[in-house]
Design a protein around this nucleic acid. Structure first.
Lengths: 126, 126
DNA sequence: CTACAAGTTAGAGTTGACTCTAAGTCAAGC
DNA sequence: GCTTGACTTAGAGTCAACTCTAACTTGTAG
């Protein structure tokens, strides 16, 4: 069981942000008798996944929706298909970002080549 | 020579945003006698480049810096090396985003595979 | 016990990038 | 000349995602 500062270091995220994610309904650590947050391995793994989704620009609202579906799932009402749909939607999104990045990387590389012809040999200056 | 609504359509960007970019020092169209903006091919090409940089999360401040270096360049003071450095920095950035997207794409694909095992055949329902 | 570092809260503030509004001015067809 | 739709401006408003503050409480090492 980790404290917030431990999780904060392990994920390179501020404690402020981690509390904010909890307020937004993305995390739900247990608490000590005194009310101090404690995180287990599964919450750490989940936070790491959330950070991945955020790094690829999935909005917090959509992540919350995924969480809510997960929590709402039961024997009488299975939400895994809806969660699958959310993941597929984000996957599409990620692929579009990839396409845009690849095109832009090429464009920048071309422009850099033009500049480098102007400065043929910027060699190591000691 | 294009009007603002024409380049707005050509680039799928609102006229609001195009004026905002001008206010931020990224664009400088000519004006008619009456003060109406007119854009030539070079400004259109440049706007398209700017939109690429934005789509890959280059901050407006940095794009402005690039513009300012370009405008400041003269025979006595060549700024092309500094511009090259800015481009290289963003290229690094784009490559990091690419790496993150690729990793995340894989993660999502794996998770999707798990969900699809739960729903082996969601076949066409009519 | 006590000191004090680390944790807690509600809520305010910040940042970057738009996005919109209102009150006008310009331009093109009739 | 007149109408009407597109254009102009300064500046206010919005939004997502943090980021910080202040006043207070908890946990732990000595």
């Amino acid at each position: 069981m980790y404290t917030i500062s431990e999780i904060s270091q392990l994920t390179e995220t501020t404690a402020h942000t981690i509390r904010y994610y909890e307020k937004e309904g993305l995390l739900f650590p247990t608490r000590t008798a005194g009310g101090v947050r404690r995180y287990d391995e599964s919450q750490l793994t989940w936070l790491r996944f959330v950070l991945r989704l955020r790094a690829t620009h999935m909005p917090i609202d959509q992540i919350r929706e995924y969480v809510e579906l997960f929590l709402a799932s039961s024997e009488t009402h299975d939400t895994s298909l809806e969660r699958l749909r959310l993941l597929e939607a984000h996957q599409q999104n990620v692929r579009q970002q990839l396409a845009e990045l690849i095109r832009t990387e090429q464009m920048i590389t071309e422009k850099i080549a033009v500049y480098q012809q102007l400065h043929p040999t910027v060699k190591e200056t000691i």
